[in-house]
Write a protein that binds this DNA or RNA. Structure first.
Lengths: 203, 203
DNA sequence: GTCTATAAGAGGATAGAC
DNA sequence: GTCTATCCTCTTATAGAC
């Protein structure tokens, strides 16, 4: 049944276009300022059609987060495959990807204060599964890096994990970019330094 | 005219109560999720009365930010008065205050993506003046600390400044607090470590 | 300046024809 | 599944009496 398969593909492509738009708008305006009308308008379909694909605005955000998680997991897998890297170097590589993605305006960020949205995400198995997988993978590297003494052992792994996750919504990137005087690479290098080496000078 | 003065004091007290409520609600729910109705209800006055004191929701947020800036400037002045501290130690002291304030739920944070709100703040002289004063004061310490080689000289002072400002809305604090397993002091110590010493181990 | 009542409009979600 | 048109709630802001 090639017809059915074709229809399915067309619909999937449309859904991907929707998710891509949502990701951009989330990164650009944030969840609360993103309207479903704007999403529909930019995708070029009617709002009612949008609701045939996704049940709610929260579902839209969840789909964007799931796709982003997949990209992150993909990046982790690629880094995993690179031989000869230390655990710390792997963590740095993934962090750099996070910063690049945010600076490119493709990292959706959700307000941690919106409890309705948070509950929707917590109830989303697709999202939670990916989040836990990602946490586990990074957690392994964190433990390894602390074992080989390349990562500060005073910090509990969870604190390190949260600190790395927080790079996805670090406002410093946007502040430095707004000045317009620095290249993206330069900005990322600075944030990498402050994240891993700290603000205080090293001997 | 003691009557006039008394009335003025009463009104000022009410305005301060409003601002205090706004600060708490901003910290708790964020700007978009904070409704003017909720502010009025918690202060215990009618919404129309609220609008006699502040012209708009944005003005409410601006007032909260101004008061917070004043607290920050006050803290900076106190730290300035303590003798025998290095520039780096002064920066750490102010940063610690920032983290304590946020963890106590008294640090209002505004979404950097809301452009209407940002424009309102940029047009608010009271806010901008304080922001620039604070930036100048911290900037001096940053330059000093880089001169005495206690702060990483690879980072431009502006990047350091933004990184310190960003501690006011660092989500890591809330994440660690949500676990409920750690004391506030412990959490702050960890964030201080990751901020100034970095995640990577020091020799 | 404080209240009650209401205007005015944005935005999430749906009905029903095709 | 897509559209147009509409519903309905929430929210900012104001009118007007006291």
């Amino acid at each position: 049944m090639p017809q059915l398969s074709f229809r399915t593909k067309v619909l999937q492509a449309r859904e991907e276009a929707i998710v891509a738009t949502v990701k951009r708008l989330l990164a650009e305006k944030g969840y609360d300022q993103m309207t479903v009308d704007a999403v529909a308008a930019e995708v070029g379909i009617a709002k009612a059609s949008l609701y045939k694909h996704f049940a709610s605005k929260e579902a839209l955000a969840a789909a964007a987060m799931v796709q982003t998680m997949d990209r992150a997991l993909q990046t982790v897998a690629q880094v995993q495959d690179r031989p000869g890297l230390s655990a710390l170097e792997r963590l740095k590589a993934v962090t750099r990807w996070t910063l690049e993605t945010q600076l490119a305006g493709e990292m959706p960020t959700l307000p941690s204060q919106n409890s309705a949205l948070r509950n929707a995400l917590l109830a989303d198995r697709g999202y939670m599964d990916r989040l836990m997988t990602l946490s586990d993978q990074l957690g392994e590297w964190i433990v390894q890096a602390q074992a080989d003494r390349s990562l500060d052992t005073r910090l509990p792994p969870q604190a390190v994990l949260f600190t790395l996750f927080a790079r996805a919504c670090d406002p410093v990137l946007g502040f430095l970019q707004a000045g317009g005087q620095h290249s993206d690479e330069q900005i990322i290098d600075w944030v990498m330094i402050s994240c891993f080496d700290g603000l205080a000078a090293r001997p």
